[in-house]
Amino acid sequence: GEDAFLPAPQNISILSTNMKHFLTWTPVIVQGETVRYSVEFQGEYERVYANESWIPISECSLLTATVCDITGDISATVAYNLRVRAELGASRSQWGTLKGFFNRITTSLTPPVMKVVADGYHLLVELEDMGPAFQFRVLYWKKGQERRMQQKVVKEASSVVHLDTMEAGGDYCVKAQTYVEAINRSSSFSQTQCVRAQGDTSLW
């Protein structure tokens, strides 16, 4: 049962970047002992429609680490409660609960890692695969013609994506941002990268 001498975990917080969410807390120290932890979550559905029930995360029960990957369970854009308690043998601490709700809409989105390639007269972009929740909005333009910027939405980043053909010898610039449709938010843009098409401009 609950034990007075085993304190509840403190400093419970969420680290959430690019739709990967982690719950962390400071360790409970008991000299010469290995304290373990168990984590539970409660979505808005459980709070409002299911008697405020809590659901254990099996991968984070009797855990010795002080971090738990909750990404798989935070799979709706609603407010979640999270709690963790310490366990030592049969003793269990009180639950330590995250202050305030966590909604994945607050995840921090970083610009995508991008590599722009000119292959002959073809403008190509290679984007880091960030998981199925991510799409990419790629903007590209001929240098000096920023007002004729074009856009391509890339849904799968697993390869070298063809953007467009380029005029011989032309300089073309590209920047990209991620878009997460589940939370309807985008990252800031990546650094702009420019490349030059093959050939000299006299060809045109």
Binding site: F41, G43, E44, Y45, E46, V48, Y49, A50, I55, I57, G72, D73, S75, A76, T77, V78
Partner: peptide
Amino acid sequence: NRKISSIANSFLS
């Protein structure tokens, strides 16, 4: 149970 929770909360949004 966790997948049902995920579906139920997605229904809410």
